[in-house]
Structure formats: structure tokens, C-alpha cells
Amino acid sequence: MRRVAVFTLAAGLLLSVSTPASAAPADIANSVAADVMSPFCPGSTLHDCSSAEAQDLREEILARAENGWSRTRIMSWLEDEYGPSIRSTPATEGAGWLAWLLPLAVVIGGAAVAWAFLRRSTSSSGVEPSTQVTRSERSELERELRTLRGRP
């Protein structure tokens, strides 16, 4: 269970650092569009919104990226224009942390409960399985094998 938790955390960290730093203006514009909600399509990102207004805004973002604006500067400009709800992820400050940390808390809390359950209900934790088969078990096993082979 600990390995699973460590693996999950490691995978999350690796994924979070593996996002390529996009240099091309078109890539910056696509990345920004994927990370903001569309003011014109309910519940969709700007990237996914097919309205004409969304297309205009994507072109505006591309134009700013081609003028040398960084991703951070474009995001700030969009937030000033449309308000904080344009960001598609909760802020990593103040109450926004609740959104990020609660799922992690559930995983860790669930793992802790499962671990406690395993420890409590493990009848012989830490004991290696016996390699000795009793006589009655051996005879039962042979009977089952004979049945499987179709012999009496």
C-alpha cells in the first residue's frame, strides 16, 4: 500500500514537471486556451469552444503571443478582462488549496484506513506462508486433481 501511495505521488510529481515549456507562439496560445474557460461556451475551455467569439479571442491570444507576451502575462491579461473565474483551475492560494488538497487527503486518509484495516484484520502478519502441506490437505488436493482429470 505504501508503494502504491509513493508511486501515485511520484507519478503526479513527474507529470506535473513534465509539461513541456512551449516556445512557439502557437503552442503558447494553444496552451493558454486549454487552461482558461471560455466566456462564450458554458463549462468549456476556450480551446474547446467553437463559437465565433471564442475563435476571435484565440486569435487575439495568438497575436499577443507573437508579439512576445509570455504565458503568464497573457493569463494575467485574461484574468483582468474576464475575472478570476476564467482560470480553469482553482488558485493555489487561500481557499483554493482546499480544491487541490482534499482529493490528496482522501487518498492518504483512505490508505491509512485501509492500512489500519489490514493491520487489524491480518491474522498472521509478517509470517511467511508455510511450505508444509498437511496429510489431509495433500489427500484433498489429490482427490480434486483426480476429479479434474476425470478419474474416480
Partner: peptide, 8 residues
């Protein structure tokens, strides 16, 4: 009002 999108 905040949004939670695919990135989250």
C-alpha cells in the same frame, strides 16, 4: 464563482 476545468 470559480471554474474547475480539465487541467485540474
Amino acid at each position: 464563482r470559480v471554474s474547475v476545468g480539465p487541467a485540474f
